[in-house]
């Protein structure tokens, strides 16, 4: 048993919330961290790349213990969701990003952020930390339309840095709001890769109905994702992406389902942010 000398204090944890034009969930994502006592900073990707910004506004990934990519429509998502953001990032920041992940620092993506992590290759990352090209995708919803609705999620993994505080098999309620959230693996390799994801414990959240049935069909699974996958992590558990929005149910009053809006309880999304802060305190 190693003797821990001193845990990192929450107020010393710095989280970079990264945005470009069209990112639009940065404020509420930052607020989730700051309300837990940590120090989030919303910065433009150009501040990490050192383009068009003054010396004092330049930032480096190594200034932070956590990278978070929030939701939105980065660069309009007119190409493939997240494609432009990830291309701008990978070119100039790829090496640093890979090191950041390999050191065990947590990286999270919500909605468009998840799409960007998949585009970067950081998820599912079955064989290496960050392959040159993406190995999965978040395709258009089966319903062929944007869907804003509340869903139930079943926690399927307690090892992931971002969900370690959530009891196994717990049912959570969160909103989704996306047009492209249909998690898909390459045809031909589907079965094999799905098995691998399962074995590695990379499937973090599955869509379910209120009773926890993860095979309840549309609209419980709002996009048609394979194996009802709503969120995954890398094999190491420090890179995590999910389509639903935990930052939108940080408090009970933004829940929708009867019985979950009770005064005095916390929102189901809070545990995601609490988990990663605790992970950072334990690791660094």
């Amino acid at each position: 048993m190693g003797k821990r000398v001193e845990l990192m204090k929450t107020q010393d944890i710095r989280i970079v919330i990264l945005r470009i034009e069209g990112t639009n969930c940065e404020d509420e994502t930052a607020r989730a961290f700051s309300r837990l006592g940590a120090k989030p900073e919303i910065i433009h990707l150009k501040q990490l790349l050192g383009i068009d910004v003054s010396e004092k506004n330049k930032r480096s990934l190594s200034d932070y213990q956590c990278l978070m990519i929030p939701g939105g429509f980065s660069a309009g998502d007119y190409v493939r969701s997240g494609a432009i953001f990830s291309a701008r990032m990978k070119g100039a920041l790829g090496k640093e990003l890979k090191e950041f992940v390999e050191k065990g620092y947590p990286v999270g993506g919500i909605c468009n952020g998840f799409q960007i992590l998949v585009e970067l290759g950081l998820l599912p990352a079955l064989d290496e930390t960050m392959p040159d090209s993406p190995t999965a995708s978040l395709r258009q919803n089966d319903s062929a339309r944007f869907e804003c609705r509340h869903v139930y999620l079943k926690q399927e993994n307690t090892e992931c840095a971002w969900t370690k505080n959530i009891p196994n098999k717990k049912i959570l309620e969160m909103p989704v709001a996306h047009g492209e959230g249909n998690f898909t693996l390459p045809s031909g390799l589907k079965e094999e890769q799905l098995k691998k994801l399962e074995e590695n414990g990379q499937i973090v959240f599955r869509y379910s109905d209120v009773s926890g049935n993860t095979n309840a069909g549309y609209p419980w699974n709002p996009n048609g994702a394979i194996s009802n996958i709503a969120g995954i992590c890398n094999p190491k558990g420090n890179v995590f992406g999910m389509m639903p929005h935990p930052e939108r149910v940080f408090d009970s009053w933004t829940h929708s389902a009867p019985g979950r809006r009770n005064v005095g309880t916390t929102g189901d999304g809070r545990a995601v942010f609490e988990s990663v802060l605790e992970y950072i305190k334990e690791m660094f």
């Binding site: 969930c25 804003c148 933004t254």
Partner: peptide, 24 residues
């Protein structure tokens, strides 16, 4: 209604559709 993101900014306390999930 479902095509509009009515929850972005995380401040929507009462939604345009209300009730049990998928029976609103």
């Amino acid at each position: 209604i479902r095509g509009y993101d009515h929850e972005v900014r995380a401040g929507t306390v009462l939604k345009p559709l209300q009730g049990q999930i998928n029976a609103e």
